[in-house]
Design a protein around this nucleic acid. Structure first.
Lengths: 139, 139
DNA sequence: ATGTAGTTTATAATAATTCTAAACTAGAAA
DNA sequence: TTTCTAGTTTAGAATTATTATAAACTACAT
């Protein structure tokens, strides 16, 4: 396994979330975060990408566990859709989406592209964690 | 089966969408639409409510078929969540939701409670079908 | 009254996810 | 370094939600 220059960074990152830096988790970190652009994925697509080479295989159960752990740790964001499959986003910054009803594809909308001039007060005892806009588009 | 005063209305409604007014569909219409307030449901909860009495049973397959048909016809709206289960809303008017991460419950936000002062242009060739805001809340 | 396309139904099949428990391993402590 | 243990990985089973299948039924046009 090629150890990237960012390897130590991921070890730190994982440790800071009480996640042991196992080789599986590091491999997944590199795949998800060693890139210029953020992207969307499902467990299915991630599993294929992680395991399409001849190097160390990562089990599907571990892919599930890791995605869940990374989401709880705040490394990933779960995307809201109406599909019965979970979609994730490596872009954890507050942003919004176009959801194409034809192709079922999601596209990012930078948060500065949407401005809200009125937002409701949350029910008492609750606070706002985040706010997402999904714009459904079609032909 | 008690025929409500609205029965004829539902027959019309169904016919106008090219859906035959079967007794199963009418029963489901009454349950969903014979009420003052709109509400959220899943196929599971709807199935329980429809079949918890001693009168005519409606099969689960028909519940699925009907919810799908009603959604296509625009009588129901599918709700965006991160759960791997479909949620529906009898409120088809443009509106938004609070999603409580603790209780996993959805609450309506009237569309007038949220105002957008800036919305992006859709990708060319596409038009905006609707826009939904989900505000995730927690303790 | 009859024919037929649309509908319902029980059940099987599929798809996504979660569970289980045994084997493995990172890292603390001896 | 060796040992110990809690955390992690894994294959496969189990579960959950949904979709498909095909036979029986029914609304309604003719």
């Amino acid at each position: 396994m090629i150890i990237s220059n960012n390897s130590k960074m991921y070890v730190q990152k994982l440790r800071s979330s009480n996640l042991r830096p196992t080789k599986q988790r590091l491999k997944i970190c590199q795949f998800l975060f060693d890139r210029k652009k953020t992207f969307h994925f499902t467990v299915e697509t991630l599993n294929k990408k992680i395991n399409n080479n001849r190097t160390m295989k990562v089990s599907l159960a571990t892919i599930y566990n890791t995605v869940e752990a990374f989401t709880s740790a705040g490394y990933l964001k779960e995307i809201l859709t109406s599909k019965n499959k979970s979609y994730y986003d490596t872009n954890i910054k507050s942003h919004h989406h176009f959801y194409d009803e034809g192709s079922k594809e999601l596209t990012d909308i930078h948060y500065s592209q949407i401005k809200l001039s009125k937002v409701p007060v949350p029910p008492k005892g609750k606070k706002i964690k985040n706010l997402e806009v999904v714009i459904r588009i079609q032909k």
